[in-house]
Design a protein around this nucleic acid. Structure first.
Lengths: 215, 215
DNA sequence: CCGAATCCGCAGTGATACTG
DNA sequence: CAGTATCACTGCGGATTCGG
């Protein structure tokens, strides 16, 4: 039994062996939001040592969770992306994020809000029932970054950066302090945002993305 | 930023700070299956250093995830149990367990199958649709341990040990090697088990607890 | 600039012994 | 039974360096 193995034939234990090491699931969160370059990851995960990032990426590749792609001509370089197996981790990441969000107080001094956190959180806030047969794409700009949410066929796709297709509505949120998810939702609901496009979709957004109602 | 904090205002990061340290979620798994004594945990988590177990339990208590109860007269001693907040971790544990189970090969030499793994796995295999209005309690005995599943009102409760109320059916599984969840389900479906009670509930069990159908 | 490899000090962990 | 104490070890944090 090597040090990192738990010696248990158990799904949970196996998952923790594969992605439970320090920084592991945070890297997965980044990759859920978009394929990332090595330096993107260093930027979005301040404090991660370069050797740890390098080691995790190698482990993920060996485990078939992520893959290293050498990008050709334009923007030559390396990107890391999740494999289909790695994308299956979304359910686990969302479940932990929802539980942890309930234990988030005010942002601690020095805390950052990674854009990927916002993008992934939107998936947890998505209400398929409220979406119905809707098809729409929103872009949200705040604090110098952009993220998007695209709804179609009762499903949602979110990510960091500009949306794959032209957004129906661009919402620019004036940043006062840290752009928490709650502050963003409030700004949109309270119309203290700049709208560009099909402005009626702002109200739709607040209907489709909201904290889950109490059971 | 202390060492274990990630410096991110993010639900996932917060969750990992609280329960993401080594052995953390495995302890939660044990406590999801039943309140545990300190020595129960040492037994079910072979390899955990006593100081680490002690440290995690203190952290969980401080975070309001678990609580330490001094049991009175009969079986005097200490038990640890999840708080309601801690029980909310069930969704995260199940999600990770399902993902990890897909990455479990054959049991490695020396691997054990904790009974709590079986009990918690049953919750992931539960099919509310197939259960309908059913009310029933099963007890499964194998390899010297017992676990139970109780279905009522479209919900399921599972745990390690004897069920809270008298079981309708006791299924005793002959142990050949490691009692994996798959082997147990096969044994029940193939009737290579000893039944005691309302034997017709064995077939019901295989209908209600099964791997999720492919989407 | 990107994508790392390397080195060092230290905190968290593993293993064992010991105690109320 | 329910832990605390001790000590060796190793993964991690932090910084620097290096090749494409």
């Amino acid at each position: 039994m090597t040090r990192r193995e738990f010696g248990q034939h158990c799904g949970l234990a196996r998952a923790l062996e594969l992605v439970g090491e320090r920084w592991g699931l945070l890297i997965v969160r980044e990759l859920l939001a978009r394929p990332c370059r090595y330096t993107d990851l260093l930027e979005q995960l301040p404090g991660i040592p370069t050797n740890v990032l390098s080691a995790r990426l190698k482990e993920f590749e060996a485990a078939g969770i992520a893959e290293r792609r050498v990008t050709p001509a334009p923007q030559r370089g390396v990107v890391y992306a999740l494999t289909p197996d790695g994308e299956q981790l979304e359910a686990s990441v969302l479940a932990l994020a929802v539980w942890g969000a309930a234990h988030l107080g005010e942002p601690r001094p020095g805390d950052i809000v990674p854009t990927s956190t916002l993008a992934v959180s939107l998936r947890a806030l998505f209400d398929p029932g409220a979406a119905g047969g809707l098809t729409a794409t929103w872009e949200i700009r705040t604090a110098g970054t952009a993220l998007y949410a695209a709804v179609a066929g009762g499903r949602v796709a979110t990510g960091v950066g500009r949306p794959p297709s032209e957004p129906d509505l661009i919402m620019t949120i004036p940043v006062e302090k840290v752009p928490t998810m709650g502050a963003i939702l409030q700004a949109i609901a309270g119309r203290t945002v700049e709208l560009e496009g099909r402005t009626e979709l702002a109200e739709t957004f607040t209907r489709v993305f909201h904290p889950p109602r109490a059971a």
